[in-house]
Simulated assay, not measured.
Amino acid sequence: MNVQRPQNDIVEIFGYAPNDTSTVCRSLWTLGACPFVETPCSKSNHDKTIVYGTCSVTTRFGDCIICPNRLYANHFATLKEVSVDAFGDVPFYTYQEYIQHRSDPTACVVALGMHSGHEIKLKQSCSMDWVLAKIENVRLVEYTGIEVQSIDITNNYRDNWYAYKNISENAIIPRSEHGMNWANVHKRLIPQIIRKSLIYSRSSFVNSGLYFIVPDIVYKKFEDIIGSDIPLVREKAPDVITVHTYALGDKVSEGRIREIVPVRKIRFKMQDFSDRFVTGPNLPSAEELDAAIRNALGLIG
């Protein structure tokens, strides 16, 4: 539909452009359903009375995915990419599919996660997003882990969202008030990747380390902290982190969903990643801290 859209805007709602009024799109608004994992959407207001369905929003760096489920398009294609990299050309099953093949002695890979069986939960409130388990002769022979991250927003897009919900021809859509919670990268996301990578590296069943699936825009924020020149490695190993970054593809016509396209595939040692987080090239200096404290107190020298 022809509307005047703002610069700060929602990019996708229930997988489609927010001004898409096609039946295939608006039926998902009615259902409150995610087209990528084929379940009710988990993005709602605080009292769960409104399902927002917001997949991605604008940022000053480009359109950015804000819901991890958006990264599971095309029946978990991103997870299948990891499976091929880690285990080669072995049949890939969701947990539901595995149930039908559970007695088959030939090798297969089974995905365990929130939308396939359940997440693997450990003590101290540690749960693994995804585990890909290779099974052969009805025995576990190897596994690898995958963490999938997007980014949270700050503020809200409420007025912007309601304008799209009640859209009319030639409407002027109000500006969204959302910002991006980039602080979460160093407060939560990087420590989580380090911690989980360390757990995987200690298992005798893990040969390929931890994989990390993330929007490329978000990973660039990781690089602001650890630097973009971290030494890379070519071979998989238990103590290696492999990063697969993605972006939204080109805009499409009504009734269609944009592709997600691979941007980068890189590997590095967990220890290098951890060291750079603690002593990274962009760590503020002691002199900067000194000056900030003097300034806060109105002192000179």
Rank of each mutant, 00 (worst) to 15 (best):
A33I: 10
N184F: 08
C108Y: 07
Y72A: 11
N2M: 12
G298V: 13
T58Y: 04
E81R: 15
S103C: 06
G145Y: 05
V218P: 12
C34N: 09
D85S: 10
V109D: 06
L289K: 08
E12K: 06
S228P: 06
I266V: 13
V278N: 08
T154H: 02
R175K: 14
E259T: 05
R267D: 06
G88N: 04
Y52I: 00
L297G: 14
D272L: 10
V261G: 00
A133N: 00
S103K: 04
V11A: 11
Y164H: 14
D239E: 09
I151H: 03
G209T: 00
H115F: 13
Y16E: 03
I65P: 01
D275P: 07
L283A: 14
K123Y: 08
A296I: 08
V110N: 03
H244T: 00
K236R: 14
P262A: 07
Y211K: 08
G88K: 09
I50F: 14
V90G: 10
T23G: 02
A296R: 13
V82S: 00
E254Q: 07
R276G: 08
T279F: 15
K134C: 06
D275E: 14
V233E: 10
K48T: 00
K121V: 11
L210I: 01
P18G: 06
D229Y: 06
N295E: 15
F205L: 01
G301E: 08
F87K: 07
